[in-house]
Nucleic acid binder design. Structure first.
Length: 620
RNA sequence: GCGCGAUUAGCUCAGCUGGAUAGAGCGCUGCCCUCCGGAGGCAGAGGUCACAAGUUCGAAUCUUGUAUCGCGCGCCA
């Protein structure tokens, strides 16, 4: 377990920036492999070819290598895509930007993507996409269950460490972000063909378990049925804590049990396992409700590394990193300094010989890299632990657990706040249990849906309420930028307006209803996609961007990009639906084409939401 | 004290590798129901992008400094 709470790491960011900056001007390696469907990269290729020709002809100095950047335009009057290439390269070419732009355009190879190219403003080159090409992309996507999003060329093994609750207590609101965001990113990586290894690094070890075991023992001695008691872990924990604080004998027994547990005592282990079993069942119920893909086999808790801890110390010693300080064993690194330039220690072994979470985390990295051979390890842990992860990654590299090409990334996230701007609490001021939070979301969603559909059967209302409630909680979290804090608001997340789950789910049901009402099956669609109306082109253009967004989510660990995209897509579809009749369109060719656009919209929404771990509904 | 992160419309938030006139939703003001789900769409008002320098043809975005807020900093996790 990594505690609860989230901010962003220096380490991974710096590593990446370092790579980019050290490159000369131009050749920017594609982090994601070149794909046929990616418009930007195709335009980039065209530009590269034009530059090459200009160099051959002596119109450009051979050593110029401007970075080729292709952006989507914000304004329709600037075409669909634009490059600032001529602006960037003008100085090196000793030409004015507009002149260079003209030369580039003159040497641009013909391409089916491009309808026309124009110079604009100080020297921007604007590209207008060919509607026929766009239409073809829509057809391709429809013909492919993966929506024409290719798998990555070089799949990686990615360990994703997420959720990681403390098993001593019940899951609460603090576990929401790690669980939900980590799951969405895992699904996205998997969809792109990476090998994802989910690790639920649960807190199942440590001094607090002595207290819990002592309490179990006492209860059992009094003839109380333990499993019933543990149905409410939170109260059980509080009781145990109360006993611990109140009774010296109890506290002594608790400490004794920790020692016995750690030395492998059979009785203690039995108690411990019983406790874990119940706590894990609690967690699994939450995961199932949340549609989070974690299962019991993904649980590799802190205790799993017990045997490795002495080996970590050994390895650190061998690497010459270990220093003894005031009886504790520490690693000091030059790059971590506290006040008065004093080095900041990372303590890996206490003076009493006990190990700490830093040690366990090192052992986990060691295992993930040496045994699992991960190319990338992602930690979805709150931003307050950012220093810990910086130290952890630095030490892991120095100790040789991780090579230079292994990506270790702290996917930090912010705090969930209440209306008052302080960390989210229940009305009574306590920690909000996740289960109760979900209950409330479902209940509120049910009430809303029932209000809109008074005649609907209750079991369907219940199901819709469940899906909408859970989706709302998840989507509210996923749609915010990961690193910032956000305010938890049932009213906002359950609203049908704005960037919310209900809005997206509604957009999906509208498409579903077209097909239901028209009694049309997907395989009955025929004819070609025809893009005539401006809004049809907009919709097609938006649909074609899906793959790009998905790749970016996997790269940055930012599901909010996908949320933003799906929201925009829904918006464009709503406009389209408003102004372009589909079922009632009299021209059959156009009708078929619009049905295809609608179908791809639905598929894209469904696939996108599925990557976020959110179910769709046919009716709501 | 040092480090990390933040500061964008009244509120909640986007803003991708520096690009063209700063983007949504809520709220506010209008408009669109003989029309496939109005749980919708269209339009308007509203911003000195905390402040100040700097780099650049060009800065909300990069650099430095300042202010304010949050978080973290030796044997908890």
């Amino acid at each position: 377990m990594h505690g609860v709470g989230g901010s962003n790491p220096l380490a991974p960011t710096n590593e990446k920036k370092g790579v980019t900056l050290s490159l000369p001007f131009f050749v920017k390696p594609f982090r994601v492999h070149t794909r046929r469907g990616n418009m930007k990269e195709q335009i980039q290729t065209l530009l590269e070819q034009a530059i090459a020709i200009l160099k051959e002809q002596g119109l450009l100095p051979a050593d110029t290598a401007p970075a080729i950047q292709v952006d989507r335009t914000k304004d329709k009057t600037h075409g669909d895509l634009a490059t600032n290439l001529a602006l960037v390269g003008a100085k090196a070419a000793r030409k004015n930007p507009r002149q260079l732009a003209t030369e580039i355009i003159d040497h641009l190879p013909a391409s089916p993507l491009v309808l026309k190219v124009e110079i604009a403003g100080p020297g921007f080159i604007n590209f207008y996409l060919n509607p026929d090409w766009l239409a073809g992309q829509v057809e391709n996507a429809l013909a492919d269950p993966r929506l024409a999003i290719p798998l990555v060329a070089h799949p990686q093994s990615v360990v994703v460490d997420y959720s990681s609750p403390n098993l001593a207590k019940e899951m609460h609101v603090g576990h929401l972000r790690s669980t939900i965001i980590g799951d969405a990113v895992s699904r996205t990586l998997e969809f792109l063909g990476h090998k994802v290894i989910r690790h639920n690094h649960v807190g199942d070890w440590g001094t607090q378990f002595g207290m819990l075991l002592a309490h179990m023992e006492e209860k059992r001695r009094d003839g109380v049925e333990i499993s019933m008691q543990l149905a409410d872990l939170e109260s059980f924990y509080r009781e145990a804590k109360g006993r611990f604080d109140a009774s010296i004998e109890f506290a002594d027994r608790a400490r004794q049990l920790v020692v016995e547990l750690q030395s492998g005592d059979a009785y203690c282990n039995q108690l411990w396992r019983e406790f874990l079993e119940i706590s894990l069942t609690h967690c699994q119920q939450i995961y199932d409700r949340l549609n989070v893909a974690l299962t019991r086999k993904d649980v590799i808790g802190e205790s799993a590394y017990n045997d490795d801890l002495p080996k970590v110390i050994e390895d650190l010693t061998t690497a010459g990193l270990l220093t003894e300080n005031q009886g504790a064993r520490c690693v000091f690194l030059d790059e971590f300094k506290g006040k008065d330039d004093e080095l900041l220690p990372m303590i890996v072994q206490k003076k009493d010989g006990g190990y700490l979470y830093a040690t366990t985390d090192l052992a986990a990295i060691r295992f993930r890299l040496r045994t699992l051979h991960a190319d990338r390890v992602l930690y979805f842990v709150d931003h307050r632990q950012s220093l810990h992860f910086q130290q952890l990654f630095a030490v892991a590299r120095k100790a040789g657990f991780a090579g230079a090409d292994t990506r270790l990334e702290h996917m930090a996230f912010g705090t969930v706040m209440g209306d008052d701007g302080k960390p989210f609490k229940t009305r009574s001021g306590g920690v909000a249990k996740l289960a109760e939070l979900l209950d409330e979301a479902e209940a509120r969603a049910y009430a809303l849906v029932r209000e809109k559909n008074p005649e609907m059967a209750d079991d369907e209302l219940r199901n819709i309420g469940r899906v909408v409630g859970i989706a709302s909680v998840k989507y509210a979290d996923l749609s915010k930028h990961r690193t910032s804090d956000y305010v938890f608001s049932f009213d906002q997340m359950l609203s049908f307006e704005g960037n919310t789950a209900p809005y997206l789910l509604y957009a999906y049901t509208r498409v579903a209803s077209i097909f239901r009402r028209g009694d049309i099956r997907e395989d009955q669609l025929r004819g070609k996609v025809i893009l005539e109306e401006e809004i049809e082109k907009d919709l097609a253009g938006k649909l074609v961007q899906f793959g790009e967004v998905v790749h970016r989510v996997a790269e940055k660990g930012w599901p909010h990009l996908l949320c933003g995209y799906l929201y925009e897509l829904s918006g464009v579809f709503s406009s389209f639906y408003q102004s372009c009749p589909v079922l009632i369109c009299e021209n059959d060719e156009i009708r078929q084409s619009r049905l295809k656009l609608s179908l791809l919209t639905a598929r894209t929404l469904q696939q996108g939401l599925s990557l976020l771990g959110i179910e769709t509904l046919e009716r709501m």
